[in-house]
Computed example of a mutant assay.
Amino acid sequence: MGDVVAELKPHFPAVSASKVRFLQERGLVHPERTPAGYRRYTPADVDRLRFVLTLQRDQFLPLKVIREHLDAVDRGERPQDLPGGVTLAPQSEAERLGHEVAGGERRRSRAELARDSGAAEELLEELEKYSLLPVDDDGGYSVHAVSVARAAVALAAHGLEPRHLRPFRAAADRELGLVERAVVPLTSRRDAATRTRVARRAHEIAEACLQLHSALVSTGLEQWDD
């Protein structure tokens, strides 16, 4: 269990052994039992967990819906209605299941970005103009770009255009600067264990920054509550 949590932590800082057990109890992952009674998680099980956690975090899908997708995969079917057009492979190819969607690993074209986010080309161009839209060197877009575009669509409906969103870029850069400052002392060593530890700490610090930001904004919003 500890190895499973360590494998998932870099992309999912909040994951814990209790969370993994919860997902297992809900029938979303089925690790084997050793003769001694211990659970044995295969790479396919870890990818299955990665897939579930990604859809929870990035698509806000309830476990019931995620289970339906996984049940279809286990029956050998190929669901076509997953967010972002992701197609799952059958259980025999489960090693590919989580990697296709986790951490933004599945890159999208410009057309797919527009389709998945509902953003018009004009809005995407404005987001790029103000350095708000993440894009790879090869022109691909990650799940984070989809989230940015979706948020921009929602804010545009309230009269907030990309030019109004520049403070978010500046704030993100400042928070990333704090993360970098905190992990730099660990980067002198370049072994795999150190890289994993640095990535985990960076995600934990970033998560704390986001929690602080959310709490401060929520406090300010209280003035409009009944």
Rank of each mutant, 00 (worst) to 15 (best):
S16P: 02
R195G: 14
D173C: 07
E122D: 15
D3L: 02
R40N: 04
H144P: 02
F12N: 00
C209Y: 07
H213Y: 11
G220M: 09
R110W: 15
G104Q: 04
M1A: 06
L63Y: 10
F60I: 08
V153C: 07
V46R: 09
V86T: 10
V20G: 04
L124H: 05
P35H: 09
V15D: 03
G85E: 08
R166C: 00
A6M: 05
K64H: 05
R33W: 01
S92Y: 06
A114G: 12
D226N: 06
D81I: 02
V143T: 15
E222A: 13
E125L: 10
G177W: 13
A152C: 07
D47I: 02
P162W: 09
P62W: 10
R163F: 10
Y41C: 00
D74A: 09
A149H: 07
G2W: 00
L8D: 07
P43G: 06
R166L: 06
R197E: 14
E68L: 02
P31G: 07
D45L: 01
G220C: 12
L160H: 09
P185M: 12
A193K: 10
A17M: 06
A145K: 09
V46C: 02
L178R: 15
T196L: 13
S147G: 05
E100W: 01
R110N: 09
S147K: 10
L123E: 04
S214W: 11
L82S: 10
R40C: 00
G85K: 09
A154R: 15
A172N: 04
P62Q: 10
D226T: 06
R57C: 00
P134E: 02
L127K: 06
A120V: 08
V52T: 05
S18A: 12
V15K: 01
R78L: 05
K19W: 03
Q24Y: 00
G139C: 08
E122H: 13
P90Q: 02
V101K: 04
A72G: 13
V15M: 03
Y130E: 14
H30D: 11
L210R: 12
V148S: 05
V101S: 07
